[in-house]
Simulated scan of single mutants.
Amino acid sequence: MSSPEAGLLDPGLLARMIAVRRHLHRFPELSNAEAGTQRHLRDALEAEGLDGVREVAGHGLAVDIVGAAAPSNRKIAIRADIDALPIAEETGLGFASEHPGVMHACGHDAHAAMGFAAAVLLHRSRASFRGTVRLIFQPAEEAEPLGGRRVVAEGLLDDVDGAIGIHVDPYIPSGRIVAAPGPCTLACDIFDAVVTGVSAHAARPSDGVDAIAAACAMVGELQAIVSRETDPYDPLVISITGISGGGAYNVIAPEVTLKGTIRSGSDATRRRAWRRLREVMEGIAAGRGAAVRLDIVEGEPAVVNDAELAAIVRDSAAACLGAGAVLAAPGWTAADDFGFYSQKRPSVYFRLGIRDEAAGSVHPLHHPQFRVDEAALPAGVTTLVASARRFLAADTQTG
């Protein structure tokens, strides 16, 4: 390992990082309710001597680490998301969730722990670099109102020159890094629909309008927007993720609710999907004598990686971990509100592999048995720290 950042994660800090991660995993909190998570992270940071930790974006935190090697106006932000999901954990871990129905099934506990360790390492080494690193521990990545949108609204990116985000990836071998330029994740919107019919006796359905039948027709026909109306090379996913209606064996349901998500790779496709969703649902409802009310909530934009920053992450990871640690892999159809960061400032969102069969880290994100291979976390921390320092070293404006 040739980089000065390699090896900085000493056994004591490694143990504290794992302790932070396991505490957060044991006590997960949903989006916009991360008060305990916020408190624990603040206590951990301040115990390591970091001053100026402040509350942001509701239940988030931010702290600036100012390099003392030379004056510099250059700043880089590191984002670590901290919220959990409404999933009942089935891992059997000794530190499994103690909050029923809530679980860190997307690795945000690991992101927060790596952010903590990166902050400590940068604080310890601040005499050896110039510029500022802003650590942002962001709430509400998983659900509206999104924390990334609020981070931007509160001006946390107004004075930075770039941003770095990290996400664990259970499809990539443990300890490997992926950071490609260009489109990285898809935009994500959510929708709710209420299909209204007319109730009737189940023995005489012709006396009413069956909302369930209309809703089922919509579920099937919406898939044609993707399979028959969209270029296969133009990413679009429309998923119905919830359906509810009826309740009695002998009553034709007068109302059904649907909910789902739209994932898209371009703004034009996103807008077309919204229009076609409404046209298809309203057309089917009208054809069956029903009615439908559709509400679409615009979510996060796609994450687009800046080429220069992606190269900095790849070069930093290769220098610290070896050239074999940097892999090529396709982007994600998942979404992340780091897209708000990449809209605002040049940004890079890189993935840290955590797949290891021996560690049981083989399940996909958002799975009740999802596990993180903790042995991969030092690679993530080292890459974050080295990338931030390399970015700041490129400063040509001092003062």
Rank of each mutant, 00 (worst) to 15 (best):
R130N: 15
G131P: 13
G131V: 14
R134A: 12
R134N: 12
L135W: 04
F137G: 13
Q138Y: 09
E142Q: 02
A143L: 11
P145V: 11
L146R: 05
G147S: 09
R149T: 04
V151C: 04
V152S: 14
E154W: 03
E154N: 08
L156W: 12
L157D: 14
D158T: 14
V160P: 13
V160C: 09
D161L: 02
G162P: 07
I164P: 08
I164F: 15
I166A: 09
H167D: 08
H167T: 07
H167C: 11
V168D: 13
V168I: 02
D169N: 06
D169P: 04
I172H: 02
I172R: 03
I172N: 04
I172W: 00
P173S: 07
P173K: 08
P173T: 03
P173I: 14
G175E: 01
R176T: 11
I177T: 10
G182W: 07
G182F: 05
G182L: 13
P183V: 00
C184L: 04
T185D: 14
T185N: 08
L186Y: 12
A187L: 11
A187T: 05
C188I: 00
D189E: 00
D189I: 01
D189M: 00
I190R: 13
F191E: 12
D192W: 13
A193C: 15
V194G: 06
V194P: 10
V195Q: 06
V195F: 03
V195I: 11
T196I: 14
G197S: 12
G197C: 02
A200T: 12
H201T: 05
H201A: 07
H201C: 11
A202C: 05
A202M: 07
A202K: 13
A203N: 12
R204V: 04
R204Y: 15
P205V: 07
P205W: 13
P205A: 13
S206R: 01
D207N: 07
D207T: 07
G208F: 13
G208A: 07
V209K: 07
